[in-house]
Design a protein around this nucleic acid. Sequence first.
DNA 1: TTAAAAATAACCTGATTTGGGGGAGAAGCA
DNA 2: TGCTTCTCCCCCAAATCAGGTTATTTTTAA
Lengths: 210, 210
Amino acid sequence: MSRDLDIHVCIIEDDETIREGYVYLIGNTPGYKVVGSYPSFEDAAKKLANDNPDVILLDVELPGISGIDALPKIKKLAPEAYILILTVYEQDMLIFRALGNGASGYLTKNTPPEKIISAIQEVMEGGGPMSAHIARMVITSFQRNEASPLTRRETEILEQIATGKSRKRIAQELFIDLETVKSHIKNIYHKLNVHSKADAIKTAKDNKFI
Amino acid sequence: MSRDLDIHVCIIEDDETIREGYVYLIGNTPGYKVVGSYPSFEDAAKKLANDNPDVILLDVELPGISGIDALPKIKKLAPEAYILILTVYEQDMLIFRALGNGASGYLTKNTPPEKIISAIQEVMEGGGPMSAHIARMVITSFQRNEASPLTRRETEILEQIATGKSRKRIAQELFIDLETVKSHIKNIYHKLNVHSKADAIKTAKDNKFI
DNA sequence: TTAAAAATAACCTGATTTGGGGGAGAAGCA
DNA sequence: TGCTTCTCCCCCAAATCAGGTTATTTTTAA
């Protein structure tokens, strides 16, 4: 069987035991081949472009530059590769920064071996593998706060303000008078206890009112 | 074995064949119980609160009010229930509106029966089940366009503008002069070929520059 | 080690927007 | 019938925005 049809995988993980575990797991699974294995981004950087991986397993906590900050650089070295984050951390900030920086999946380290293999398969087939809890957090990030103090119209107008439009333009697009828009904004400011649009937008976003 | 420990499931799906298929599948799986099955939201609305479901399977294309528009109303009738979207549609707009309206998962209709069962299980355990392609689209929505014409600083400043902050405030927070911020903004406008912050923000967001 | 790109800052002008004060009518709901 | 929401009106002063041109320093890349 030709090795050329195998999925080529790189691993960047500082803990030697865990790293060797992945190497063993993937190397011994038919259809997969480990083409590189490094304890840090600095080590990986030199050889990554030559490895020509299809998928890169990346740890977030690495010595030197963190996995998340390394993501854009890895993307440049291996633009065709899918990057899967493998980590113990489940903090919102890390997840969203990782995805924003180009990760195509996010797995926690308690993921059983067979799930890691299927995640690699899945990302190659156009999927976005995530651990269950991560997926929930991602979905939740799209959702609004149902206990918003703002009325429907107020919410609509604050959303428009958040796009940078002037009150005049908002009035025109909603077919209402400029004075009406101003009234709504005054009410929004009172309800949110702020005195500027920047603060209104921040408060509203922090509380998921918009 | 007590039925009280079962996961209670409601189904809202207009195609009778498909609906009965789900009823049969779920009703005959140990640990699950179908407590309601309706061809439209209007039919479901009357009885939903009484069914007290743990999970609701919801189709997006329904006669009368669409599943997506029904979502907030369903949330009010059964605030404790998790809602899983089951549909043939994979358009961005539908997915993000569904998630924004309160769905906790999104499955396409080619999902095999055992995956539907495990998705119900998963959402009850704090997960966010999504079909592979949906998950990829969701992840992609977090990612930036790497071919942005904006420099790092320009991107940073446009992001700040998008939060509603004034140029003066941006200057203070970035420890640079107001004139510098103005220079960057002029360059941003030229690069994006716009003449207002609203247009700059729109163009940048449409193209995922910010 | 240069040349190019990016970030910084200045000075000018005029139009527009913003935030805040007050009040008030109409529609719809409980 | 109150209560909320949406609508509109008047006033004001301060601040912001958009645009032009030029120029220095720092960083990055060839």
